[in-house]
Amino acid sequence: MYAMAVMNRHVCPVENWSYNESCSPDPAEQGGPKTCCTLDDVPLISKCGTYPPESCLFSLIGNMGAFMVALICFLRYGQLLEQNRHSWINTTALITGCTNAAGLVVVGNFQVDHAKSLHYIGAAVAFLAGLLFVCLHCVLFYHGATTRLDMAMAYLRTVLAVIAFITLVLSILLGQGSQELIS
């Protein structure tokens, strides 16, 4: 998507770090990157998938990813049921995983420039539900650990989940700060 967006002049290339406050409109030259870039042209993931034809690829990847997430959630749920681990945590993990998949569908099908609030709501649902899914599986893995290696993996998963949580909180806080600077 990034390469398509750069070649279609929808975003600026990553190596262009000299973004201007304003630019005169570039002539409609296809086949090359933009020469004058503003903060609206920063190649963020969602921004690269805003306009056709890359928006079609963005939607396809989002929907396929959501399908794979849901499939993995159901397989993991069934695997734990086969191990006689019937618990509310396993059921809650299934629900949060499917909620994550639903958030991914919303993100993939509502581009950021056309339905900003829906896109951001879908992203928030996907990130939060995905993080909760990972945390619940850390608990399930910890309770199912039988060897020292299993216990070490449970601790490693927990550390990685904590790092992901801290990263999510920092990105939200820093995102709010950058929104205030832009506004």
Rank of each mutant, 00 (worst) to 15 (best):
P53F: 07
V112L: 08
G108K: 03
K47D: 04
L136K: 02
A28W: 12
N84G: 07
Y19Q: 08
M151V: 13
P33V: 04
L131A: 03
G62D: 01
H119G: 02
H119S: 04
L57H: 04
W88E: 13
T91F: 12
P25F: 14
M68F: 11
H119N: 06
C73L: 08
G108W: 06
K116L: 13
G103F: 05
I89W: 07
K116Q: 15
M151K: 15
T50L: 09
C73R: 04
S59E: 03
N16V: 05
V105P: 00
F67P: 05
L71P: 05
R9Y: 05
E82A: 12
N16E: 10
S87H: 03
G130D: 01
F141P: 01
E54K: 04
L80D: 03
T50R: 06
G103V: 03
G32A: 14
T35R: 14
K116V: 13
C56A: 11
I121P: 00
V112H: 09
G31S: 02
I95K: 06
V134E: 09
C36Y: 06
M68L: 13
M153T: 10
S24L: 13
L131T: 06
N109F: 01
C23I: 01
R85Q: 13
H119Q: 06
T50G: 02
A70M: 08
A70S: 10
T96N: 04
S46V: 02
F74M: 15
L136V: 10
G130L: 03
D26L: 08
L104H: 03
N109Y: 01
T92Y: 10
H10I: 07
C37G: 01
T38I: 08
C23D: 02
I95P: 00
Q111F: 07
T147R: 03
G130W: 03
Y77N: 00
Q83R: 15
A102T: 12
T92R: 10
C12M: 02
P53Y: 07
V112F: 03
D40V: 09
C12P: 00
C36Q: 07
E54W: 00
N90K: 05
V112C: 05
H143W: 15
G108P: 00
N90C: 05
Q111C: 07
T35P: 04
I95F: 12
M151T: 15
S117E: 14
C98M: 09
C98N: 12
E29S: 11
G144M: 08
Y51P: 00
N100M: 15
Y142V: 07
S55L: 01
F133K: 06
N84I: 06
I121Y: 09
C56G: 14
L104A: 08
F67N: 07
Y19V: 10
G49L: 00
F127N: 03
Y77W: 15
P53N: 01
N100K: 12
V134K: 11
V134L: 12
H86S: 12
G32N: 14
V112Q: 11
